Simulated scan of single mutants.
Amino acid sequence: MTIHLVKLCVGIESFEHLQSFREARATSPESPSQHVTRMWPKREPELLEGGSLYWVIKGVIQARQRIHSLEEKIGEDGIRRCAILMEPALIRTQPATRRAFQGWRYLKPEDAPADLFRSTRAEDELPAHLAAALGEIGVL
């Protein structure tokens, strides 16, 4: 059974800001994105069965990246950390509000917001907070 992760995207203002941040850090367009975290997910096999990392930007899930693999990283302080390697493609999702939390949380597939497809123009026309409010009442 697949499971996902949800993570706050601290310091990022919008989907476009996250996209440009990721592109600036990539060594090549095909190179995987990575996010290093202190804790190693205990549900690793489920994550690697098609899981994604869902990004919370300004209190709203707005994007996801498919998880490719997990790698051990030892910091300069000697502490073992987990690098979450993700496919470089950043996929817009239906907006879904989330309260602040520390670290990451598991996200069940049935609770994950749906992807927004390129033919959907709502992401270009509405601010994220408004789209999230409309999504909560079932309009978007």
Rank of each mutant, 00 (worst) to 15 (best):
P45H: 01
E49H: 03
R105F: 10
A114W: 01
W104Y: 15
Q34C: 08
A24C: 02
A24W: 00
R25N: 15
D77Q: 05
P113D: 10
K42N: 10
I84F: 04
A112Q: 09
R38P: 11
L85S: 07
S31M: 06
R81Y: 13
K58W: 09
S33I: 10
I84L: 01
R80N: 13
Q94R: 12
E44P: 07
S20Y: 02
R98C: 12
D77G: 01
L107F: 05
A89I: 11
R105E: 15
A89P: 00
S52I: 02
A24R: 06
W104R: 06
I61T: 10
I79V: 05
I61R: 02
R43T: 13
W55Y: 14
I74Y: 03
I61M: 05
D115S: 08
Q94M: 14
R81F: 06
R92F: 10
A112D: 11
L107Y: 02
P29Q: 10
D77T: 06
G75D: 01
H17L: 11
D115P: 03
Q62R: 11
T97V: 10
A114N: 08
E46G: 00
L70V: 02
S33H: 05
D77W: 00
P41L: 07
I74R: 02
A83E: 11
K108Q: 11
R105G: 13
L47E: 10
S52P: 11
A100N: 14
S31D: 14
I61E: 05
S28T: 14
K108I: 06
P88W: 03
E16I: 06
G75A: 03
P41H: 06
I91Q: 13
I57P: 02
L85G: 07
A63T: 12
K108D: 15
C82A: 09
P32E: 14
I67Y: 01
E16V: 09
V60E: 03
P32Q: 12
G75I: 02
L85N: 00
A89C: 01
D77Y: 06
L48H: 02
Q19A: 04
R92C: 12
R99P: 09
K58D: 15
I91R: 05
S31Q: 08
A24F: 04
Q65I: 10
A89L: 08
S20D: 04
P45A: 04
A26L: 12
A63R: 06
R38K: 12
P113E: 09
S52G: 12
G51Q: 09
E72A: 10
V56R: 01
G59I: 09
S33P: 05
A112P: 05
L107P: 06
I67G: 03
